[in-house]
Design a binder for these strands. Sequence first.
DNA 1: ATAAAGGCCACCC
DNA 2: GGGTGGCCTTTAT
Length: 171
Amino acid sequence: MIINSSNSNTKREYGYSNTPFGLCCISFKDEAIDSFNFVSSTSDYNMNENYSSKQNLYINNKKAKELVSQIFESNKAPDIILKGTPFQIQVWNELSSIPRATTTTYGKIAKAIGQAKSARAVANAIGANPIALLIPCHRVIRSDGSLGGYKWGVNLKRDILQWELDNTKII
DNA sequence: ATAAAGGCCACCC
DNA sequence: GGGTGGCCTTTAT
């Protein structure tokens, strides 16, 4: 389930957890994730550029581990909260319709949201996506078949796509 | 209000 | 393979 953010100033939590692709830092309100970043260490919270304010922000590694476990081991993805411009929200929502273990292109996403000429803008929006894996930006590649870019590194993009072919979990 | 920078694309060579 | 011009949204002047 995707929730469009209504910037409530309620308590937020964040925490670190290992994944099959390395360490991540996620932040969440109640059970709903609003950011998921791959990081190199537990001092890397600043990579979470969407939430620089630390007001009402508390660390909760236990809950973070539970959510990551849910992502990789259950058949029900956690809810996510989207915060962005209307165009970004539209693009991110469209990504959720890409079947796992498949790919599409920036141009096709542009066409799907009714703006066939906006491939480049779509790429910008995807690059600004704050939630790895659950918003499947890794499934969008270039029209010539090359991988294109990835916020957390093209090598990781390749690894995730291969992982989807080799596993049947929910991601 | 304007400029510059992008995870692009179709086209050419 | 590489280069060019066009496209659209964001962000920073």
